[in-house]
Nucleic acid binder design. Structure first.
Lengths: 258, 258
DNA sequence: CACCTTTATAGTCAACTTGACCATTAAGAG
DNA sequence: CTCTTAATGGTCAAGTTGACTATAAAGGTG
């Protein structure tokens, strides 16, 4: 591949900048571009994240976020979906519908000890799914409780922390929480998503009121109620509504006042 | 540069995936990585964006967002700050303090007709500054009114639209608006930022109440008031406060209810 | 100069939202 | 049957917001 001179900046080379004149391909080390995925789910009232175990150096034996290289003819978003489907297998059928959101791009020159790798990070939210397939071979993939994870490879600890912050913040002003729930869910499940991610207890009636009075957040279902965990009064079922943002938002209890 | 096999994914190659086994450098075209900047300011009550005119093909003569290649030993954020300082010149002194926020990364394989370029987009907010230096040579750089811009090169129209949406949304729940103001400003200037970006008129007393009762949004200044535009009663001056987020947020008038 | 326009600032009031509760219903566990 | 758990329905006070009125202090204009 020949990198042409002046890409976007040819004009600037006329203006006495301190960088090399023109665009010399040799002056710009090629970058590898990868995607990394922070896939969250709520299991048994605890936040889990999908991790894979590395089978090669560096960081052999370390847990890391799933991800991989962006291929020549695909976008980063396509790469993320592909890797996610390949990795979990479970998502193949719903990979087109899951919530996948670009977080940000990590480009520290030293983030990979071997080469220059720029990674586009994505956060994904999925309902409680069975264990990912595979795991019998060198690479294992499994759900790990968010609070009980060990150190991760590369800067994945940092990426995961950013993803967690982003997800927590987006619960406040978007309908994102429904992405953690199965297609049909009870309000208790939805509330548990908030409680799990935020790590706080929410008032049941107040939460219910807020969700039901926000137009488009959830959509009541016809059929008979079901029992969520067996205990307690059966709950009515809902589907995710058509709204995407919450106006006004559903703020964390912490966030109110200073 | 030799791209080593198995970067992050070596383990996965043992699991019968459909992708090429191992990591063949030839199979992965190297990517060029650039940054693109959507730099906003408010001038005379109108939103402006910093654009440069391309002096080379493709898109010669078209306006484009400033930006450039990420260099081998710098991160995308460093590249963005460098390009911004080089481009405007005016920001050299304050480039360390301006608000620069990573937007997202654009990686459509066809976004550049010549080669595979992945671009990390940033949004920057600056107070009203004089015209950018340069402009006498092939590349001109100038503030263009946001609503009066022509078509932009590459996918910059798309990037700019995303940046605009992001900035508008962040005004709601962050103290970002102060980044558009000079170090000392009147509440009228701050309100005008909201009105300009959102394109709506806000009630003066209500806006004032909201800003002043939000702890840490602004900090009252001692000295005597000044007149903003000459007309009207002199206004008290404030500095940006220490808070970064608004709880509860300052919602757009549109956003209330559906 | 009187008078108008403009902007800042102070304050009021009703509607709406939120947080903290209390009460009832309906299931499973023992 | 009784206890526990969770869903659901409701009240009430405090806080927030939107709409609006009023006053103050500057410049502009005749």
């Amino acid at each position: 591949m020949t990198v042409q001179r002046d890409h976007k900046w040819g004009a600037m080379t006329n203006r006495g900048r301190r960088e090399p004149r023109g665009y010399d391909p040799a002056a710009f080390e090629p970058f590898a571009v990868t995607v990394d995925l922070a896939v969250f789910t709520v299991r048994l009232g605890r936040l889990h994240v999908l991790l894979v175990e590395r089978g090669e150096e560096p960081y052999r034996g370390c847990w890391a976020l799933p991800g991989g290289f962006v291929r020549p003819r695909e976008s980063a978003g396509q790469a993320a979906r592909r890797e996610l489907a390949e990795e979990t297998g479970l998502l193949a059928r719903s990979a087109g519908a899951l919530h996948l959101e670009q977080l940000r791009t990590y480009s520290d020159p030293d983030r990979d000890p071997r080469m220059r790798v720029v990674s586009v990070a994505y956060a994904a939210l999925v309902p409680d799914l069975p264990e990912p397939r595979g795991g019998g071979d060198a690479a294992r993939a499994r759900w790990v409780e968010f609070g009980a994870r060990g150190p991760l490879a590369f800067d994945h600890e940092h990426i995961l922390a950013d993803a967690y912050d982003r997800v927590g913040a987006k619960l406040e002003y978007t309908c994102l929480a429904t992405a953690f729930c199965p297609p049909e869910f009870a309000l208790g499940e939805l509330r548990q998503v908030y409680e799990t991610v935020w790590g706080v207890a929410l008032d049941r009636p107040n939460f219910r009121r807020k969700v039901l009075t926000t137009p488009g957040f959830v959509q009541a279902l016809q059929g008979p109620p079901r029992r969520t965990g067996g205990r307690g009064k059966p709950a009515a079922l809902y589907r995710a509504g058509s709204a995407t943002t919450l106006h006004p938002p559903l703020l964390r209890p912490e966030g109110r006042k200073t």
